[in-house]
Simulated scan of single mutants.
Amino acid sequence: MIRVALVDDQALFRAGIRMLVDSQPDLEVVGEAGDGRQAVGLVREVRPDVVLMDIRMPVMDGLAATEELLRDPDPPRIVMLTTFDLDEAAARAIRGGASGFLLKDADPEFLLAAIRTVHAGSAVVAASATRDLFAHFASPGVRAVPPAYQDLTDREREIFALAARGLSNAEIAEREFLSEATVKTHVSRILGKLALRDRVQLVVFAFEHHLV
């Protein structure tokens, strides 16, 4: 069972998401909060697996709450909710460790799939904003590549480049004549060496350092 927490200042919106999530046999809502400060306390109390976090809320906004929660030793996966295709706060949250963002009017099936995807260790980004989001991280100047990148093996750099272009494990496996399990192992090692949380941060890293 995937445990989900809902954070949004609109009770009606939370009620709709709760009904959707609780209708699934493998998902359950374990708590709700109406602002970021409540969210921090709730998450630390009930320990959900995934948090759906609105960005704009009173008392403490979603970005501040996310930054605080991601400093905890074992934080949940956090997905930002926004009404804009490319929200500056959502971009900042992803750079800081959030697992992606969704539009609040996303298709219900996409939202459910996103919860499962994030719980499995991957990341999600509103499809309409993907290109603009990663262009946002492409700095105009050349940033020095961190020494950790030099520690990647030749094979890991090949996998890194393909993952940074958005290929899935299955697509990389087919292209490189590897098993999906092997690709998954390589990706995990790459993330570990570069101290990255997930594949979205891998893509951000690649764009920021002009590696794609």
Rank of each mutant, 00 (worst) to 15 (best):
A98Y: 04
G121V: 01
R157S: 00
R165W: 00
G100W: 04
V200C: 13
V7Q: 13
E174R: 11
R143E: 14
R56D: 10
D72H: 08
A181D: 08
L63W: 12
A173M: 01
A33D: 13
V51A: 06
V21A: 02
R175A: 11
H209N: 04
Q201R: 09
F137Q: 03
A93R: 10
A148T: 14
A164F: 04
G121T: 06
A33M: 12
D22E: 13
D105S: 07
L152K: 06
L196M: 02
F101D: 03
S179T: 14
F177W: 11
I55P: 09
V200L: 12
G97S: 05
F110N: 14
A173R: 00
A170N: 07
K104W: 11
R92G: 04
A65D: 10
R44K: 15
F207S: 11
E88A: 14
A114D: 09
E208H: 02
D49C: 02
D87V: 10
V124P: 02
R18P: 05
A148E: 08
R197L: 07
D105H: 13
D8C: 15
R56S: 07
L196S: 01
I78Q: 08
L81N: 09
L81F: 07
V30F: 07
A135M: 08
V142T: 14
L202K: 02
P75Y: 04
G166T: 03
R157G: 00
P108A: 06
R157A: 01
L102C: 04
Q38L: 15
V183K: 01
D54H: 14
A148G: 01
G62Y: 15
V79F: 10
G141W: 13
L162N: 00
G141E: 14
L133M: 07
E180L: 02
H210W: 09
A195C: 04
K104R: 13
R95D: 12
T153H: 05
A93M: 09
T130F: 06
E176I: 03
L42D: 07
T66P: 09
T185Y: 12
E109L: 11
T82R: 10
V46Y: 04
A135Q: 13
R197E: 05
R3T: 11
M19S: 15
H136P: 05
A89Q: 15
V145C: 03
F205P: 00
S168A: 05
A161K: 15
A206E: 01
A93E: 10
H209I: 00
I94E: 01
L191N: 00
D85Q: 07
R157K: 13
L112N: 09
G96I: 05
G31F: 05
A181G: 12
P147G: 04
L111A: 11
P58R: 14
F101E: 02
M57V: 15
L86K: 06
V142G: 13
S188G: 15
S23P: 02
A15R: 11
K184I: 00
M53F: 10
P146Q: 08
V29L: 08
G62A: 10
Y149D: 01
E171F: 09
L194R: 00
A90K: 03
A206H: 01
A64S: 11
F110A: 15
V212Q: 03
P146C: 01
V51F: 09
M80E: 06
R143N: 12
V125M: 04
V30E: 09
P58G: 14
E208W: 00
A33N: 12
E174H: 11
L52N: 13
R47C: 11
V4N: 08
